[in-house]
Each structure stands twice: as C-alpha cells, then as structure tokens.
Design a binder for these strands. Structure first.
Lengths: 383, 383
DNA sequence: AAAGGCGTTTATAACGTTGTACTTCTATCG
DNA sequence: CGATAGAAGTACAACGTTATAAACGCCTTT
C-alpha cells in the first residue's frame, strides 16, 4: 500500500550497500575495491580463470594470463584476504604473544620473528600480555583476539611448569622461552645450563675467582626455570674449577629489570662481601648492576668483570660495553616460525612435541676486559 | 561406467572436505571448530539468533539468550573472524608499519599503540620496513601484506616531504613521526620546535652557554624534518638568550643511532671546540654521545650537561641517567588509534586531514645535574 | 472477536574467494 | 580424416558470518 517514495514512518528504504558499485560505463574507476568479478569482466574471462592466474595455476594460456594481469593492474585489484581466509581456512597471519615490547629482549625477539615470518609470507599479529597471568592464559587458550590467526608463538612470563596443560589447546602453537619445559607442544629454547657455564668459565679464564650472580629466583626450590638452569650452569663451572660456591654471592632479583639489577648490586656491595666478577642472568640486570657499580665507584672491568645474558643490542653500546651470552636469537626466531608452519600444515598425525635449542656463543666485550672488535670467545651446544 | 570403488586412473573420487564434521550422535565433541550452525542446533534456535546474542542485539528473550550462551560454552564456539570480516568488511585489525622494533623508540611506540588499540578491541599487525624506501612505499600504498587490515598507522623513516602524494592511497591511514608535514592524511606528531627550545632553555637555566647539538641533517637545506625543526628550536632558544649560534657546535649525525651519536661526539671533541652542554636530537644519539664523553674522560654533567629527546625507557637507567624531552608517547599512540578509527568509520564525506600534537614535558635527570626523582621541569604546547 | 502493534525469531541472500566437476577447444596420432 | 587425449576455461557450490525482510507470537485495542 505504501506509495513509492519515502516511507511513512520507520520504514527504512533498503539502505544502499556501504560500497556501491556504479555501472562501469565510462573508463573512470570507482573508489571501491574491485573484486575478481570486475577483473574477470574487464579481461573477458571467468572469475575462476582470474583466480587461476593469481594462484599461478598451470593450464592458463600465456595470452590469457597477460590479459588478466593487465586487467588486475588497470583496476588496481587486490585480493580480499578475508574471503580467501574464509574459503581456504588460512589467514596468512600468525600471532605472537609476548609480555611487552618495551622490554628490549622482546622487542628484538619480535623483530626477528617478524623478519622470519615475512620470508614465508606470513604477517604477525602482536599481542602483549603485560606480565599478567590471566592474559597469558587468555592468549594461549585462544580466548583472546588471536582467532584470526593460523597459529601462535607464545612467550610466557608468568605461566610456569605447572601450567603445562594449558598449552594443549588444539591450536597450532610453539612455545618460546625458558619457563616451561616438557610441555605438550613444540618448544624453541636455549642451552641455559651449558651457556651459563660457558659464561662463568669465561670469567674464570680471565682470572676471576669470587664470582657473584644476580637474578636467582626468590623461592628456593630448584625448578626448571631459566633462572634455576643458569644458576646450575654457574655452579657447575665453579665446581669444575674447584672453587667453592659462596651462597652470599648468589643474589635474588625478580623480575629481571634494570632497577632490580641495580638494587641487587647495591645490596651485594652493602653486604661487604668481596667479589671480582658478576654473572648477571640477563643483560638488563647486568646494565642495572653496571649502573650501581658506577655509583659505588667500582671500576668495570678492573675491579669487577661483568657478563650478562641475551646479547641485546644495547649491550654493544653501554659504557663499558657489556659481554654477554648470545643465545642465537635469529636462529630461535627462524626455527620457531618454521616449526609453527609445519604444525599449521600438519593434517592430523600429531607428531610428538619437539624441543630445539640453537647453538650459543659468548660475546666478549669491555666489561670482561675485551678491547677489540666483537668476537665470539666460544661457541657451544650440548646442554 | 566406472564401477563403484577405486577409479581406474586419475579419476579422483570426490575428496572429503578437509574438516569433516561427524554427526553429533553422542555427546562427545569433535575436534573441528564448531560454527554458528552447531550452536544454533544445540540451542534449538536459528543461526541468526545466535548471531544476535553474540552481537548483543536487543530483542532477544533472556531465556533464549542464556540457552544460546550455554550452547556456546558447551561447544567452545568461537566466531570465525575471516567470515565476519568478509561479511562486515571489517577485520578488527589495524596495521602498524615501523622501521624496526629493535630500535627502542619504535618498540615503545608499538607497545603503546598495541595497548591503545586493544582498548578498542583492535588487533595490531606489525610490519617492519627496515629503513628501506621501497618497503615503506609498499606499506603505505598497500602493495604489502596489510590488506587484511582496516587501516594503517605509518611511521616512515625514509619517505620525506616530497613523497606526500604517496600517502593519498584511499585507505584509512594515519601518519606518525616528523618526516612529512602537511600531507593529505591525519597526522599525529609532536611540538618539535617549542619542545626543542624548552630543552635548550633547560640547559641555559643551569648556566650552560656553549651548547652543542648533535643530530642535524647532513644536507643543508632547511626543511620540515624533525631534525630541522629541532635545530630551529635550538637556535630560537639561543637567540632569545642573546647567545650567538656557533656553527661548529652544530654537528651532523644520521641516522640517529648510537654509533653515530658517539661518532659525532668524538668528532666534536677532536675538533677542540669548547662546549659545556649537549642537546642531542634524540635519546639514542645522546646515549652514544654519553659513551664517547665517558671514553674521553669528560664528566657528565659536571663538564658537559646532556639532554636528549624522546624519553625512551632506557634514559632512566643509563649512567648517568639521561634528561630528555618527553613528547607524550602514550598520548600520541592513543590519539593516532582514535583518529584511525574515526577514519575507518567515516562514510564518505572526507573531512580534511588533521594534525595533532600532544603536550610535551622536559624530564630532568642526572645528565643535567638533577639528582632527585623524576620530575618534569616544564610542560608545554604551542609549537 | 477481529485488528492491529510490538517484541521475537527465522529463512534466505549476500560478502569474495577457491575446489570440484564439467565443457570446450586444440593438436596429435593412427 | 576421425578419434582422442590433454590443455584451457567455465559454472556452480561451498566457506561462516551478518543484513534484510518477512513471519510468528502474544497482548492490547476497538
């Protein structure tokens, strides 16, 4: 009964689609994204042929191919990844969940991972868990935003050995870091024990005998956390050198931030225990300790030699530059991405989880008396 | 003609879909992701009702809602974002193109942006352009991977004023940084001139008169790059204080990396020109210069007071801690995300591009003789 | 008691792509 | 020269979601 025209009341006239496509009467292009249909029409072929060209399928005549390609270029066509993702079940994006990028270590890790993923034409959606246990759980169980992704690289900071079961989420995932071992999924980590041992041996080699350690975990139980593993390497090195372990030289610091490194060093100095070297369980702690040593008037490396762990970029430029353990970040990133891709492509026959540890090397710099250019003192493996 | 059974030759039997869904005869769930259809069946409603519940539409009876919600929970249903993206034209993901995360400044920027985006339920796909002009062009013109995204936050490092036109890509985009001004898209940047002026005034206030600058652009033309703008602020401060500008104290350094800061400082010292303060055009340069000052035996701040720009986290923990200009990174991030969202939601009526500059503040630390806790010496606006 | 009105719910058609099955064309061979 | 294999191209149906329009209740109104 309604007369053609504006409806009487709330009767909304069929609203125009957001992206209207005017009939391409003139040569000018519209501002909405063209689809395969448009390309097909311009090239005078079916949309499937367009698809075939785009996906490099065989059985497309060269002449047809060039016709389609030029239509694509002319229209500025770009595939709709949502549609492709819906159809193919793949989005071409993987998720990366890290505590926070403002922590140098994770920024560099993310950097390396994005580069590695890019080689495989994968995008990386970065999620920050902010050192929050619940957010880590959300990320790994998929409650989070990451359902647009094909898989997940997960670097926890709060979840621990007891949360192993959470990793078994049926979603392609690869674990990074040193907080959980023996979990149900692939894991790329590092030679914590042997590389820590090598770091301490480096200090021993330059004649130090009273080697402090900063970064032990507050609770006393020996677990599998990287802190515990590195402490184990520290003790092993001392043991093999026949040097007794002095408990007072092992200092707690958590989390591994600069302020805590500085704080632990101040406490160590205040305690009045003599020491001539420091093994900090990561570079950030070491940099904080360096700061506290400077405040206290102790010269590095003359009075105290210092070595860190992780070999973050900053270590090269601190004053003095910081010796460190390079755990092979680029290799870790590349390996993690490759494992994840394998899992994504895996049909059903779940292979058992793998754990991979790239080789490490000790990078000697000024803080342990090295003056020349960067040069690895020792490579290694065999954790 | 073919007998039922294996085909004679290449006749592929209709292959099963990758994700088969067994009839849900028993209570046990299958391992494939359930869809709205599954939820609808379990809840005994239509799929549209499920959709309505998920999208918090009105006109759903409470009893129906709870029934649907429990079905969702029971099945562990999770919406397929590709499908949603296809249908709605939105993916819920924005792109962030930065040079590289291993540069502290960009890591912290990305950190802030991811947090800001999360507040709006947006994911962030991070792309690294690696300081490569072609890759920056690819990112901004959309040739890259970012077509799964609803919009782009772009922080160029190579593109300059002459590339303005490239930004007009018809894709919702917001520009960050100080390399391009007056472009065709929204821009979130900072008060380069006035904040640089304030930084130098800070040095003047503590009695310094021969203030060096590190980070000027190699080419001499005065453009609109952040380097030029900050140099302008430097000169303005000196001018107002009635102090002549000494060209030899203005040192070139590019790009703004530690090594170049150290290098420029070494050159400055070698040139034998007296100076009692340094304004480094960013913190990274300042940290490099700090390193070189230390090597040369100059005390900071006693012999040379130093102030940087950006207020990266690291500035708080260097030795000595570094005074800096805080350009308001969190505000910049939040603003950029909000502008982008506005543009994404914009129908057609293109509002003209906007440029927004948050307030800045000067953070005085040890490198300019401040010993207490962090405290802003001056806030400011009005570029 | 029939007619409307409003709160709910549903059937169905997109969105843009790729896989399957089929058709048409071309060249080669006996 | 007709048969035929393979290359080249096409029609159509998914993928899982949301928007539209229409239908179904149930209650109020006349």
């Amino acid at each position: 009964m309604a007369i053609r025209g504006t409806g009487v009341k709330g009767i909304a006239s069929p609203r125009m689609q957001r992206r209207q496509k005017p009939a391409p009467s003139n040569g000018a292009e519209t501002d909405v994204s063209p689809t395969m249909h448009d390309v097909a029409r311009v090239a005078g072929v079916s949309i499937k042929t367009v698809s075939n060209v785009i996906n490099d399928f065989p059985h497309v005549r060269p002449s047809t191919r060039t016709r389609v390609l030029s239509a694509i270029k002319e229209l500025g066509y770009r595939p709709n990844l949502s549609a492709r993702g819906l159809r193919s079940g793949r989005t071409g994006v993987i998720g990366l969940a890290v505590p926070e990028l403002r922590q140098n270590y994770f920024a560099e890790l993310a950097d390396a991972i994005i580069r590695a993923a890019e080689k495989h034409d994968l995008g990386v959606l970065v999620e920050q868990t902010s050192g929050d246990r619940d957010r880590e759980i959300a990320a790994v169980t998929g409650s989070g935003r990451l359902r647009l992704t094909d898989g997940l690289l997960f670097s926890p900071e709060r979840l621990g050995q007891d949360d192993r079961h959470l990793l078994d989420n049926g979603f392609p995932s690869v674990l990074l870091g040193e907080r959980i071992f023996g979990g149900p999924i692939d894991h790329v980590t590092m030679h914590n024990v042997s590389s820590a041992q090598a770091a301490v041996e480096h200090l021993l080699r330059i004649g130090r005998r009273r080697i402090a350690l900063i970064g032990a975990h507050p609770d006393q139980r020996e677990e599998l956390r990287s802190a515990d593993l590195r402490v184990r390497g520290y003790k092993a090195a001392l043991h093999e050198a026949g040097i007794p372990v002095v408990p007072e030289l092992i200092r707690v610091a958590a989390p591994w931030h600069r302020e805590n490194g500085a704080e632990a060093m101040r406490a160590l100095i205040a305690a009045g225990i003599p020491f001539d070297a420091l093994f900090a369980l990561n570079d950030t702690l070491a940099l904080g300790a360096l700061r506290a040593l400077g405040d206290a008037g102790r010269r590095v490396p003359d009075d105290v030699a210092v070595i860190g762990f992780d070999n973050i970029d900053e270590a090269r430029f601190s004053l003095p530059s910081l010796s460190s353990v390079d755990p092979g970040r680029d290799v870790i990133a590349a390996t993690a991405v490759e494992l994840l891709i394998e899992r994504i492509n895996e049909k059903e026959g779940q292979r058992p989880p793998r754990t991979i540890k790239p080789e490490f090397r000790i990078v000697a710099r000024e803080s342990t008396g090295h003056t020349g250019t960067d040069e690895p003192t020792a490579g290694g493996a065999a954790s």
